[in-house]
Design a protein around this nucleic acid. Structure first.
Length: 445
RNA sequence: CGGAGUGUGGCGCAGUCUGGUAGCGCACUCGCCUGGGGGGCGAGGGGUCGCAAGUUCAAGUCUUGUCACUCCGACCA
């Protein structure tokens, strides 16, 4: 993409409403525009990142046998009356009426709806297990939205729902998701720690929050120092091997990690680290809470009708955009992990009016595109300073800096955004370095 | 919802106390210079001062109401 043709409204100054780094940088880097409290437009650059995250989440859900569907944003109140949550949910639920005065709502979550989908078709234990998920916009009318997309009212969420005959099977489904979650976060370039969570009003007795450690995190967390250098990727674990998965799950959940709410000091190790974190996922086993009230029943082997065992598994996709920035930035801007970067490489043309410089840039731009590298080419006819600043701000993993000075000796500058390392390299080796690096990324998950 | 603030050109702000020509920086347009970390000179365009009533000869400024947004708290992915 040529920057001169693109829609990338970067801001030089900090918008006054943005307090934390991710919010500030998302506004400044032209990723989002606020339309109301906790409601945002995703501009082209922001949308690219959102989509990349979404696709990685999707990939890992599919990998453990979950099936994607897409449920509506607007739901009928009837289902919620059935489950009893229409009254229980309170003001967070945005309630609306249609022209016939029917009670509707903008979905804050989808347990009722998915249960209704399930019960309409599945009647036998032979059709179990099933896991259905969707990635959809939700709305919760938070009292006080804040921190940009980290705590918006409208947000993109992946929600999966598992259906099993027995509790034992439901636990297996839970563990599969647990594994998928760790793989997902690893692919996003994040270290995320599973923590035993309070099951709250939803009930059930098995629940984990997935917490990204970050100083600007919303809640205090207490973790065993061991987590800091543990392998969290689950890369050697195959979900179909139930024994292997169970062993992995037990390993991961035996090391101490607790949020503020669940930390009581009991069983805490000596080498406890107190830090802060951002919740980027939450999984629940809740048994028959909805299947009983909503009559999602199947017949078991004995011909007896029983409610299905359910679990739900959420990942805040839009929130992750902010969370990733919280974990990956410096004073100048964002430092995208390669797998979610909006573009892999940015080319900076330092002097558009210089024929050779522009010629080299064009050539490089063409070649990188031909090599399947997502490249953003800053071909704007402006001064260098602004280009450097913008490129650092938007945080692409690699920058190729091309100017007359270097070209005199046949080199360009290659800069790695994450570390700030800069090297003068020949044109040929630029192509090599970049295409090899990109290949590594795309094979990474 | 309790507490605290803010609404003035696209963005960031001054002007409001003490009513009297609506201003600054950046951005934008045109021209020239410049060209390796937000550059320089010159010439321009753009604002019913959130909205509505009221007081006044006169309201960005005073009064009342209202809306929006932000921050702290309780709540939450």
């Amino acid at each position: 993409m040529r920057l001169s043709q693109y829609f990338l409204p970067t801001l030089k100054e900090d918008p006054k409403e943005a307090e934390i780094a991710s919010h500030r940088f998302m506004l400044r880097a032209g990723m989002i525009k606020q339309n109301g409290a906790g409601i945002y437009t995703w501009l082209p650059m922001g949308l690219r990142v959102l989509r990349k995250i979404e696709n990685l989440v999707r990939y890992h859900q599919d990998s453990v046998g979950a099936h994607e569907c897409l449920m509506p944003t607007i739901q009928s109140a009837d289902l919620w009356k059935e489950s009893g949550r229409y009254d229980a949910y309170g003001k967070e639920m945005l309630r609306i009426t249609d022209r016939h005065d029917r009670e509707m709502l903008y979905g804050p979550t989808n347990e009722e709806m998915i249960t209704d989908v399930f019960r309409s078709y599945i009647k036998s234990y032979k059709d179990l297990p099933k896991n259905l998920y969707h990635i959809q916009w939700k709305f919760r009318d938070e009292i006080r939205p804040r921190f940009g997309v980290m705590r918006g009212r409208e947000f993109l969420m992946k929600d999966a729902y598992s259906f099993d005959l027995t509790k034992e099977d439901a636990v297996y489904s839970y563990q599969k998701m647990f594994l998928a979650y760790l793989k997902t976060y690893t692919s996003l370039g994040l270290r995320v720690i599973p923590m035993k969570a309070d099951t709250g009003p939803i009930g059930g007795d098995l629940s984990h929050e997935f917490i990204l450690l970050a100083e600007t995190g919303e809640s205090e967390v207490y973790v065993d120092e061991k987590w800091m250098d543990m392998d969290l990727s689950g890369k050697d674990v195959f979900y179909k091997s139930r024994g292997q998965l169970d062993k992995f799950f037990k390993e991961m959940t035996s090391v101490y990690a607790a949020t503020d709410e669940t930390h009581d000091g009991v069983g805490a190790p000596a080498n406890l680290v107190k830090t802060r974190g951002i919740e980027v996922g939450h999984i629940f086993y809740f048994g028959t809470k909805y299947s009983e009230s909503m009559k999602a029943l199947v017949q078991n082997k004995e011909g007896k009708t029983v409610p299905v065992e359910m679990g739900s598994y959420g990942i805040g996709v839009s929130r992750l955009v902010g969370a990733i920035i919280e974990a990956n930035h410096d004073d100048a801007g964002i430092k995208w992990p390669a797998s979610v970067a909006p573009y892999n490489v940015g080319i900076i043309n330092l002097k558009v009016s210089d024929e050779e410089t522009t010629c080299v840039c064009e050539e490089l731009y063409k070649n990188l595109q031909a090599a399947n590298v997502d490249v953003l080419y800053d071909d704007r006819d402006t001064n260098a300073g602004g280009k450097f600043a913008d490129m650092d701000l938007i945080g692409l993993p690699w920058q190729v800096i091309v100017g007359p000075r270097g070209l005199k000796s046949g080199v360009v500058e290659l800069k790695k955004r994450a570390t700030g390392e800069k090297h003068e390299v020949s044109l040929e080796s630029v192509m090599n370095t970049l295409t090899t690096d990109i290949k590594d990324i795309t094979q990474g998950f």
